[in-house]
Each structure stands twice: as C-alpha cells, then as structure tokens.
Design a protein around this nucleic acid. Structure first.
Length: 595
DNA sequence: CGCCTTTGACCCGCGC
DNA sequence: GCGCGGGTCAAAGGCG
C-alpha cells in the first residue's frame, strides 16, 4: 500500500463515527475532501451514531500525512495490521514501541478524542443543546473505549504470560529431545556397535564421553562432524577431507585406504566401512552456498578464516579461493569464495562442515541458518531427488521467495544455495519479500535455539535491508562494524530481541521490532515458526543419514584477505531468495539464478 | 616471529 | 589408461 491507496498526498480521512477507538477507518480516497497540508478537522452534519456511509452525515477527521515518513509508516502499519487501520500519530516521533501497534493505535485515538468535534460555532442556546446531545453519547463512547483499552491491555498481558509459558515448554521439549537422542545413541552403541551404527557414530571415538559429544556430532552437518574426531585414529571416511594440517595426513589416509580390508574380520569390517563410506560420501559434500552482492572480498560471518588455496575454476574467469576455519585447531569447516561469472558483483560463498568449537554470536546467526538449510537439504535429498520434496524444502527454507526457490536434491554433492542477490522489483530500498529463514535450527544445547533463530532471521533480514549485504550478520555482536550503519532499525530491534536474555519480555522486544519496521514481522514469524515446528526434524535427519546438522556450519569471515577478483559493485541489495540446487559442483550455484 | 597469502605441484575422482 | 577438473598441500614470501 502506498500513498495512492491512502489518498492524494497521503491524506487519511479518519471516520470519527462511534466505534471502538483504535479502529479508525480509512475512508476511500474518492470520498476525501480536498486535502490540506496541515492537519484539519471537519465536521459534517450530526453524528448519526453509526458508521455512516461516506459522503453524508459523516464526521471525519482528516489527517494529512504529508511527510514521507508518516506515509511510509502509516502504509506499512496498515498493510501489516488490519485490525489497526492506522498508526497515525500527530507527532513525528518514532512509533510507539513496547506494547505494540495496538497500543499505539489506542494512544492515537486518545489524542484524536481531544479534537473538538463539535460543529459550527455554537453561539446560541439551540446550538448548545445540540452540542450537549452530541457530547453525552460521546462521553459514553469514551468510557467504552477506556474499558476496551484496559481489556486489550489485559489481553496483552495474558498473551505475554502465555508466551513465556510456551517458551518454557519449548525449552523443556528441546531438553527432552536431546536426552532422548543421547539415549538412543547410547543404545545403538551398546548394541554391537556394528552395522546399525550410523556413520557418524562409527566415526566417534569409542570410549569418549559419548553422551556429551554425541548429540552435537550426531546433528552435525555430516562428514564434518566425523572429521572433527578424525584426529583420533578411528576416522572412517572422507579420506580427502581430513582437516589435519599435518603434511603426512594424506599419506596416512592413503595408507589407511590401502589397508582398508581389515585382516581381522575382512568381510564384516570391509562391508561396514564400505557402507559407511557410501553413506558418508553422499553426505560429506553437503554444502550451503550463499549468494550475496558484495563489493567486499568476502562476507563477514564472525569466523576467522585462513586461505589455503586458490584455483581457477572451469567456466569462471574468477578464481575460487579456499578458506579454512582457524578459530580452533582442527576445525573442519571450510569455505569456498568465488565471484559469479555472470555477475561479478555477486559473491558466492560455499560452506562445508561443522565447527567443532564455540562460535561468537555473530557467527552463530549465519552458522545456524546455513546449517539448518543444509540439513533440510540433506533430509530431503535422501529419498532421491524428488522434485516435489525439493520444492517443498525450498519453500520451507524461504517461504516468501517461493518464486526463486528451486530444489534439486540429487546427490552426490547437494548444495543449498541461499540466494540473497535478487532484490524486490523496487530495488534495494523496496523490501518486498523479506527473507524468511524458516530453517530449523540445529538445536544447540540450551535454549539458544530461539536466540539463533531470531538472529538468523535478523541477519538475513538485515542483509537485505542494508546495502552492504552481510554486514548485518555482525549486528548481534558487540563489535559494530562500519557497515552497521546500514543495518535497519528493524534489524537492530530484532537483534535486540534475539540477544535479549531469556527472561526478557520477548513480546515487547518483538513488538518494538515490528513497530520499527513492520516488514520484520515476516522474518520474525518465520523464525518463530521454525522454533515451534522445526524441532522434530533433526531426528529423521540424524537417523537417516547418520548426521543432521549440528551447530551451525561455519561461515563468516572476518577475513581480510583479498578475495578472488573483487569487483566494485556498489549496489548491494541483498535479497532473500533461496535457491536450493543440487549441484555436483559449485559452479552450478552460480547459474542457479537462471533457473 | 608468527600468521597469512600466494602459487605451483600433487592427489584423487570421474568421464571418455 | 589417460586427461580433466576439483581440492589440498606446503614452500616461499609478505606483513605487522
């Protein structure tokens, strides 16, 4: 909705007919009298006591929303809150936060009530009588509205309580889920530890504190999780992907492969290993690719990376750079950075693996989002590349960008591509469809799930909001990068909500974010949805593939290194289109746009 | 001095 | 078996 819908010059005609305060009507533009640049109050005839049809016996308050800000805010509010038809406030100050749009509507009405609605000059007795007649019902209206206000406040408080209760339940469910998962793993281990074990479980150190380590790895993004333990001698698969930095690692692995047929129990062990390798082979290459417009060499995701290689990829004049996470020794997470061949302003970052170390908040957002996307792809790709499933996943990943969501989850190296390069029709400034990270988050221990969801939502949201792409990913961290200036207020509010301590009133924080920018509701809703509905996913994923997503996949880069063929592209309007493609190689993602 | 990037060489998987 | 392309290693050099 824009100015045109509100009437010429953004003028709103507010029907002052007796109806609950807070439900001011927007009169059709055609009924609006000539507009003025200043707020005016007009009275036509007497109040008939009902919502009178426009044009006759109507009392209307005409508010000129001349300023662009007001127009935008009003339009956005009207579009996002149908019950609150307008959040117009006489003062240019920021929209009311906290109690949300409903409260702001009520406040506005109170103000409006102070407007003298009495007609004419009322200079004689008849006029006074008429005024009195009008005033009495009006006072009734006021009291009624007051009651309604208190009722709504009570309702709001009730909803707050309920929200807290639900959050508690969610925490409980999460804990129970983790406990069950650990129990299951323990049972499987105790049960001969043979063919039934999922690959990841097999890769785990036998006697280590399985209870503590298992859950995370069990949910890990595949091979990476196994690789985390690869430093031990029990590594089973991914011979090439060992993260060890030792120069002899490759030789060791090769030797292992040559010796693979274990003389001890040749048939069984060999078959187990074969099975494990097959399963892992399909999983280990699971990747999450992020496409974003960026002039920066790499996107900042809060992690530290070290470049270990660069290659010219076929079909792309831009070299592909290989990075390894250096935040912890032996962290298996790697990423590839490459410019899109078609549009060099697009930076394609592909993540692989799961961090084996704590992540800073800034990295958490991205890690959670990408790991969730990867796990969704993995879970959907298992039954083979079913396009129905794939599309479903794509829509699940980014519900609001369904047009861009295509999934082909065929192995061997399924890749989830989060395409943030497609802006809304209006360009960078027009947030048409916000990214909706509907990802289920890899349930990190504790209640950080919600936190990460919100962060992911905020991160993606802000990445679109700001012109500096992924700068928003840092917003949750205390460090305010120079890009933070671009982060929208809604994003900041979202981050505030996400970073708020568990006991904080989430509703209030969310309301603040919504008030700051109603468009954020979309992302927030997606995040909440993922919290509530995503909890069940990890199990099937883990059980089917022996791995799901664990902590996030790493991404991020505070890296300073020159990225491959950095191009100067000032237009960094990120958008939220998720293109999930199954590609046997990374180059496929660069072409996903054309799909 | 330590960390990082660069870059050529090497290894591996895959297709022909 | 060979060639190609992707991915990784590690020596060399740069930088703070």
């Amino acid at each position: 909705m824009d100015k045109a819908h509100l009437g010429v010059g953004g003028l709103l005609a507010l029907d002052a007919s007796p109806r609950p305060l807070g439900f001011l009507n927007l009169l059709p533009p055609t009924t609006s009298p000539p507009f003025h640049r200043t707020r005016t109050t007009t009275m036509e005839a007497a109040d008939d006591g009902n919502g009178t049809p426009p044009g006759r016996g109507r009392r209307s308050i005409e508010v000129d929303f001349f300023s662009d800000d007001k127009d935008k805010k009003t339009a956005a509010a009207a579009a996002n809150n149908k019950t609150c038809r307008t959040t117009v406030s006489p003062d240019p100050g920021p929209p009311a936060a906290g109690s949300g749009s409903a409260a702001s509507c009520l406040a506005i009405k109170k103000e409006d009530l102070t407007i003298n609605l009495l007609p004419g000059t009322g200079s004689n007795a008849n006029d006074e009588e008429a005024a009195t007649r009008l005033r009495l019902p009006y006072q009734d209206k006021q009291s009624r509205n007051t009651n309604e206000l208190s009722a709504m406040q009570a309702e709001l408080a009730r909803m707050n309580d309920e929200n807290q209760r639900l959050r508690g339940m969610l925490t409980q469910v999460t804990s129970s889920y983790q406990a069950l998962q650990m129990h299951l793993v323990a049972l499987m281990q105790a049960r001969a530890g043979g063919p039934m074990l999922p690959p990841v479980a097999q890769a785990l150190p036998p006697a280590t504190d399985g209870a503590a380590v298992m859950p995370r790895q069990f949910l890990g993004l595949g091979p990476a999780a196994a690789e985390e333990t690869s430093n031990s001698s029990t590594e089973v698969g991914s011979p090439r992907r060992s993260s060890s930095t030792g120069g002899n690692r490759r030789q060791e692995l090769q030797a292992e492969r040559r010796d693979s047929p274990d003389p001890a129990d040749p048939s069984t062990t060999a078959r187990q290993q074969q099975l494990a390798q097959q399963q892992e082979a399909s999983m280990r290459k699971a990747r999450v690719s992020v496409r974003a417009r960026s002039e920066a060499p790499i996107i900042a995701d809060g992690c530290q990376w070290r470049k270990y290689g660069q290659k010219m990829a076929k079909g792309n004049p831009c070299p592909r750079a290989y990075y390894r996470c250096t935040m912890a020794n032996g962290c298996p997470v790697r990423k590839q950075v490459q410019r899109c061949a078609d549009d060099r302003s697009i930076l394609i970052t592909t993540y692989e693996g799961t961090h084996n170390h704590p992540l800073p908040p800034a990295a958490m957002a991205m890690a959670s989002t990408t790991s969730a996307a990867a796990s969704m792809l993995l879970s959907g790709s298992m039954p083979s590349g079913d396009m129905m499933t794939s599309n479903f996943l794509a829509r699940a990943v980014l519900p609001c960008s369904s047009s861009m969501a295509t999934i082909s989850a065929s192995a061997p190296f399924p890749t989830v591509t989060l395409d943030l390069t497609h802006g809304p029709p209006g360009g960078a400034g027009a947030p048409a469809a916000r990214p909706q990270p509907h990802f289920q988050v890899p349930q990190p221990p504790h209640q950080q799930v919600q936190h990460h969801h919100l962060q992911a939502a905020a991160a993606l949201y802000s990445s679109h909001q700001s012109s500096s792409k992924f700068s928003g990913l840092h917003m949750s961290s205390s460090s305010t990068s120079d890009n933070n200036n671009n982060v929208g207020t809604a994003s900041r509010a979202a981050v505030a909500a996400a970073d708020a301590p568990p006991h904080m009133d989430t509703v209030t924080a969310a309301a603040a974010a919504i008030t700051a920018d109603p468009n954020f509701t979309v992302a927030l809703a997606a995040a909440i949805t993922s919290i509530i509905g995503g909890g069940g996913h990890p199990i099937p994923i883990a059980m089917h593939q022996g791995q799901g997503q664990g902590q996030g996949q790493g991404q991020g880069q505070q890296q300073q290194g020159p990225t491959p063929t950095p191009t100067s592209n000032s237009n960094a309007n990120n958008n939220n289109n998720a293109v999930v493609t199954s590609s046997s190689n990374n180059t496929a993602t660069s072409n996903s746009e054309t799909q």
